[in-house]
Every structure is written in structure tokens, then in C-alpha cells.
Design a protein around this nucleic acid. Structure first.
Ligand code: FES
Ligand code: FES
Lengths: 144, 144
DNA sequence: TATAAATAGGATAAAATTATCCGAAATAAA
DNA sequence: TTTATTTCGGATAATTTTATCCTATTTATA
């Protein structure tokens, strides 16, 4: 469904959100441990999120990753997925036709579109804040 | 979403179904042309479908691939996807936790499960026959 | 029976994804 | 100003997925 890179990116963003809500910066090392991911690879993905303005990084001693408090509430999962995996999951054909086109549909188009759109809606309506709160309250988990 | 192998497998199966409904066997060459896929790779995927008893192959002169007429109606997309991509798409965690577990859910579990289950339902309720009919009537397409 | 036609399957190869390593650049603090 | 810390970014490596090639095996037909 999502690439590994995207899975790591989502989980890392949630972990950063949790910590930023408590005014703590976190390092790639800490992040990788908490979300059970390869550190250097995760760092690369975070760089992409920084370039897309989803999170901020601070270099040097006492540096690390953080996210603006107001962005925790406004950032949606869909933005993270789009930044890392692109829009194939939102617009791509389920059977790999070059483009998903109503006027030249693949055999599963009608039924697939329903599911694809629902996934898109779900991602667009899920904020980092919601997900971070569930982790904080122990309702959900980032690893194992 | 689906692997390339799975996309090819689904399209090939549909094309075989169309032809078997008119008592024609088809070759990997013909299939690959009609679904716009790499021939040898497609042939390998078809072998997997043969081993899973979804289609039949006949070796030698006048050989090719075919599917029993009654199986055209009873074979569901879900079976093809399962045979090629396994059950990750039906049961796997959206964020890559080792297992999707209600009692140890990842942050997106509740919302993801809804979409994943809908995809599963869709695949379980779509037969090769339905898809083949749409191609035959020119409503949908296997390539481009 | 000999031949040609066709799938099966193993061995590689290419490409994409995932992962690691290391030096450069930036920053806080001594 | 120097040093320690930390992200950035390029190079490289490992793994998985996708794709190709070649030979063996099977089968219809001449
Ligand atoms: S054309 Fe295949 S999903 Fe729209
Ligand atoms: S635990 Fe992640 S989808 Fe169920």
C-alpha cells in the first residue's frame, strides 16, 4: 500500500509531533528507536519532509527535528503521503494503465475508484494531532 | 497498491477468460500484446496461476492458456491477488507493524481497517466474468 | 516416428527500493 | 575562537522486484 519510506515518514512525523507538543526536539537516532526503523534511511526521509515544509530541522548542538505547534493540528496524513509517495495512490490506475481515465477505464475502474477515493478522504481527514493524541494516551502504538 | 506482477496477472486472467468463453486458447505472446506487458515475466505469473489452479495450460502445438467456463464466473479477483501478492493487502498493517492487531493497533488502524476491508470486499465480490463482459462490450480496456 | 509448436523452469540481468557510510556544513556552548 | 554536536547530502551497498534468455519437456500433426 504505502512504501516503507512512507510508513517511516508517517510514524516519524507522529513521534516528532508528540515531542514538539511538549517542546522537545528529537534526533534521528531517538526517532528510529521509537518507531523501529533504520536510522540513516529515516533521516533521509525526514529531510524530504523538511524540504516540503512539513517539519523543521535545527542543525548543530542541541539540534534535532521539531514541528510547529499549529502545524500539528493542520498537517494531514495526505500531505505526508503525497510528499513521499507522490500522487499515484490518489490518482493512479489500479491495474497500472498509464492514466486513470473515466473515458478509457480499466476493468476495475468503477469499483477501484470508490476504494481509492475513500482512502484519500481518510488521509485528508486525519491530522497528526489526532494520531499523536492516541499514542500519548496509550490507545495506539508506533512499533512492534 | 498491487504489485506489477499482480496487475499483469489480473489483466492476463481477464484476457484468458474472454477467449476461453469463445473456446480459444491464447499464448503468452498474444496475452502480453493485448495487456501490454513483458511476455516472459507474464508467462511466469501465469505459471503461478496454473499452480494455484486458477487457469489451465496446455503444452505443445495448439497449446496455450485457458480457463474452465464455470470458473470464469466463480473466480474472484481476491483469489488472483492472494495467489500473487499474498494476504498482506488483506491483513497487513498500514504502517508496517509486524501484525495488524486490534489489541496493539498502529495510529491509523481504525481508519485504515475500514478502507482495507472495503478493498477486500470489492475484490471478493468481483468475478472474472463481470470484468470480461465489460471488455467484450467495449466499456473497459486492458491497455493504454 | 520425426518434426514443429508450445509451455515450464532455471539462470541471469536490470531496475527500483531500501539501507548504510562518511565527510561537509551549521550551530551551541565551553 | 575552538570544540563538540548535529543535520545535510553525496556515494555506495544490499535487497527486492521486475524483466530477459535459454534449454528442457510436452504435445499435435505431418
Ligand atoms: S482506469 Fe484503472 S482505476 Fe481508473
Ligand atoms: S495495526 Fe496498523 S492497520 Fe491494524
Amino acid at each position: 500500500m504505502f512504501s516503507k519510506a512512507c510508513e517511516y515518514g508517517i510514524k516519524a512525523a507522529i513521534f516528532i509531533a508528540i515531542n514538539s507538543s511538549e517542546n522537545r526536539r528529537v534526533s534521528p537516532k531517538e526517532i528510529a528507536e521509537e518507531i523501529d526503523s533504520p536510522q540513516a534511511f529515516t533521516a533521509k526521509i525526514l529531510q524530504a519532509l523538511v524540504r516540503h515544509n512539513m517539519i523543521k530541522s535545527v542543525r548543530g548542538a542541541q539540534g534535532g527535528f521539531e514541528i510547529d505547534k499549529d502545524k500539528i493540528a493542520t498537517t494531514k496524513l495526505s500531505q505526508i503521503v503525497y510528499a513521499i509517495d507522490g500522487d499515484k495512490i490518489y490518482n493512479g490506475c489500479g491495474l497500472g494503465l498509464h492514466t486513470c481515465d473515466e473515458n478509457h477505464p480499466c476493468p476495475v475502474h468503477d469499483k477501484f475508484k470508490v476504494v481509492r477515493d475513500e482512502l484519500k478522504d481518510m488521509l485528508e481527514n486525519t491530522s497528526l494531532e489526532q494520531l499523536a493524541l492516541d499514542i500519548k494516551s496509550g490507545v495506539s502504538f508506533l512499533k512492534v
